[in-house]
Simulated scan of single mutants.
Amino acid sequence: MPLFLSIVGSTINASARPAAVFIPHLERIQSSLLSGLVMRLPTAIPLSGHSDIEESQLVVRVFSSETPQRLTVSVFTCEQGSHPCLLGSFSVERKTAASARRELERHEARGDRITLTDNVKGYLIEGPSQNPSYQFSTVMWQQNDMIYTVSFPANERENLVFMAVSMAREQPLAPLASRPIS
Results as ranks from 00 to 15, higher is better:
residue 6 S to V: 14
residue 6 S to K: 15
residue 9 G to V: 00
residue 10 S to P: 00
residue 11 T to P: 05
residue 12 I to M: 10
residue 12 I to D: 11
residue 14 A to M: 07
residue 14 A to Y: 13
residue 15 S to P: 00
residue 16 A to S: 15
residue 17 R to Y: 10
residue 18 P to A: 01
residue 19 A to Q: 06
residue 20 A to T: 09
residue 23 I to N: 10
residue 24 P to V: 00
residue 25 H to Y: 15
residue 25 H to M: 05
residue 25 H to S: 07
residue 26 L to Q: 06
residue 26 L to R: 06
residue 26 L to A: 03
residue 30 Q to H: 05
residue 31 S to N: 14
residue 32 S to Q: 05
residue 34 L to V: 12
residue 34 L to W: 15
residue 36 G to V: 06
residue 36 G to Q: 02
residue 39 M to D: 08
residue 39 M to N: 08
residue 39 M to F: 11
residue 39 M to S: 09
residue 40 R to Q: 08
residue 40 R to T: 02
residue 41 L to I: 04
residue 43 T to H: 15
residue 45 I to C: 05
residue 46 P to Y: 10
residue 47 L to N: 07
residue 47 L to Y: 07
residue 48 S to Y: 11
residue 49 G to K: 03
residue 51 S to L: 15
residue 52 D to P: 01
residue 55 E to G: 15
residue 56 S to M: 10
residue 56 S to Y: 13
residue 59 V to G: 08
residue 60 V to T: 09
residue 63 F to C: 03
residue 66 E to P: 00
residue 69 Q to R: 14
residue 71 L to N: 09
residue 72 T to D: 10
residue 72 T to S: 12
residue 73 V to Y: 06
residue 74 S to G: 13
residue 75 V to W: 05
residue 76 F to I: 01
residue 78 C to P: 03
residue 78 C to Q: 06
residue 78 C to D: 06
residue 79 E to D: 14
residue 80 Q to D: 13
residue 82 S to V: 09
residue 84 P to L: 03
residue 85 C to N: 01
residue 85 C to E: 00
residue 87 L to G: 07
residue 87 L to T: 02
residue 87 L to M: 08
residue 90 F to R: 01
residue 90 F to V: 04
residue 94 R to A: 13
residue 95 K to A: 13
residue 99 S to L: 09
residue 101 R to W: 02
residue 102 R to Q: 11
residue 103 E to L: 08
residue 104 L to Y: 00
residue 105 E to H: 06
residue 106 R to L: 05
residue 107 H to S: 01
residue 108 E to H: 11
residue 111 G to W: 03
residue 112 D to H: 14
residue 112 D to S: 14
residue 114 I to M: 06
residue 114 I to A: 05
residue 117 T to K: 01
residue 119 N to E: 09
residue 119 N to A: 09
residue 119 N to C: 01
residue 119 N to F: 09
residue 120 V to L: 02
residue 120 V to F: 04
residue 127 G to K: 04
residue 128 P to Y: 06
residue 129 S to W: 04
residue 129 S to F: 11
residue 129 S to I: 03
residue 130 Q to G: 06
residue 130 Q to I: 03
residue 133 S to N: 03
residue 134 Y to R: 14
residue 134 Y to N: 14
residue 136 F to N: 06
residue 136 F to P: 09
residue 137 S to I: 02
residue 139 V to Q: 02
residue 139 V to C: 01
residue 140 M to G: 04
residue 141 W to Y: 15
residue 141 W to M: 03
residue 142 Q to N: 07
residue 143 Q to Y: 09
residue 144 N to M: 11
residue 144 N to R: 15
residue 146 M to Q: 13
residue 150 V to Y: 05
residue 151 S to M: 04
residue 152 F to R: 04
residue 154 A to L: 03
residue 157 R to H: 13
residue 159 N to L: 06
residue 161 V to R: 08
residue 162 F to Y: 15
residue 162 F to E: 00
residue 162 F to W: 12
residue 163 M to R: 00
residue 163 M to H: 10
residue 164 A to M: 02
residue 164 A to H: 06
residue 166 S to N: 03
residue 167 M to E: 01
residue 167 M to R: 02
residue 169 R to W: 06
residue 174 A to I: 07
residue 176 L to A: 09
residue 176 L to W: 09
residue 176 L to G: 11
residue 178 S to R: 13
residue 181 I to A: 12
residue 181 I to H: 12
residue 181 I to G: 00
